[in-house]
Design a protein around this nucleic acid. Structure first.
Lengths: 107, 107
DNA sequence: CGTATTACTACGTTAAACGGAGTATACCCA
DNA sequence: TGGGTATACTCCGTTTAACGTAGTAATACG
């Protein structure tokens, strides 16, 4: 299955936040979820590095460890931040596509 | 005017390509355009570094220099690439927002 | 005629993306 | 029962590119 490709415009942080918006989950599950919904594979360095940063920024918080899994959930500020980012992204994408539609034939 | 904020999820490359989708323009004009439509300020290092990379990737090409300005335009492959990226971005953003809507109240 | 704006170049620093390697536990199945 | 696979990470090194500062030079303006 070919999912849409976000290329280098795929800040792992947002992918992780979007994954946690679906439901709270631990690192490995985030990795699989991101891979399946965005077609982006995050290696361990990228994934856990980004998770640590998101936690220190207060956008996600750890839940009790269960069976060597450390699940995380979005905080209120993580939800707000994600919403803001996604809204901006959606506006930007639709504006860009509009530009392509208008100018595309005439380039 | 408060524009939407793309934060760190704002690969300068895509912003530049989207700017050129509006019309061909030179570096400084791209900088101003990106600032006005995306609210993102690109410093010279970021801007011209990204432009050089986009050119070497064949996504943009230089037009004849006029009055110490070096304008660029999208190539066909740049248009295709931008379209693909923006479509993916739009899907991703709307999927993420949907997840927030569904799970948001229940987190 | 000097100050601001335009349009860059050049360079250095830093953050973080990325991947390889390794560890350890649990699960399956022959 | 023990060997392979999946899970769930940690650790660490390399590379990339984002970002800013400084500087240059030309044109505009007032």
């Amino acid at each position: 299955m070919e999912t849409f490709n976000l290329g280098r415009f795929s800040d792992p942080s947002i992918l992780i936040l979007a994954s946690l918006a679906g439901s709270s989950k631990h690192g490995y599950a985030i990795m699989e979820d991101v891979e399946s919904f965005a077609g982006v594979h995050l290696g361990p360095g990228t994934l856990y590095g980004a998770i640590a940063r998101l936690e220190s920024q207060g956008f996600i918080e750890p839940l009790p460890v269960e069976e060597r899994r450390r699940p995380y959930r979005l905080t209120a500020s993580g939800i707000a931040f994600l919403h803001e980012q996604l809204s901006g992204l959606e506006s930007f994408a639709s504006m860009g596509l509009q530009r392509l539609r208008l100018a595309g034939p005439g380039l």
